[in-house]
Amino acid sequence: MTGLRPSGGFRAGRRPRGDRGVSILEFTGFLPILLLIGMAAIQLGLIGYGVNQAGSGARAAARAASQQGGPPAGVAAGQAAVSGWLDPQVSPEKGAETTTATVVVHVPGVIPLFGGYDVTRRATMPTDD
């Protein structure tokens, strides 16, 4: 009985020497995929943030333009409601019944091979005249 210990249990067998370092090679091969998934998650988060900011800017611009301030006040309110690094483009249009504001923001690309994305949101408010 060569496998028994004095305590009665079996000894663990020796590990073969041929598989040393395999786990680091597997990790190194899988690392680019993990980085790509992480960057895609960050990109989706940025796009969601851009959609949220564009919607907030469009509502603020439509609200300000529909009141007595007119389109110049709408542009200022829309740009103030959006983070500056998103480069908001605000264009309110005041009509007789409703005022519609359109905000376009540019979300930068995180993944090197893809460019940025433009996100557009519109909001309509009743005109207060």
Rank of each mutant, 00 (worst) to 15 (best):
P71A: 09
V90F: 00
Q53R: 15
G95I: 10
N52D: 04
A62S: 09
V105Q: 06
T100Y: 10
Q53N: 13
R122H: 11
G109V: 10
V22T: 14
G18I: 11
L31I: 07
I47H: 01
G84V: 08
D118K: 13
V82F: 03
E26T: 11
A54Q: 07
L34H: 00
L36S: 04
G57P: 12
A80M: 15
A80N: 15
L35V: 14
A80K: 15
G18H: 07
A65P: 14
S91I: 09
A76Y: 00
V119A: 06
H106N: 13
T127P: 14
G74I: 05
A61W: 01
R59W: 14
A61K: 04
I111D: 01
P71H: 09
L36V: 09
P6I: 03
G57F: 02
S23K: 04
G29A: 08
G38N: 07
G48L: 10
M125F: 09
P32W: 03
I47Q: 01
G95D: 09
G55K: 15
F10Y: 00
Y117V: 15
T102F: 05
L46F: 12
F10T: 09
A77E: 02
Q67A: 14
A54H: 04
V104F: 02
R59H: 12
P126F: 04
R63T: 11
E97Q: 05
V104Q: 03
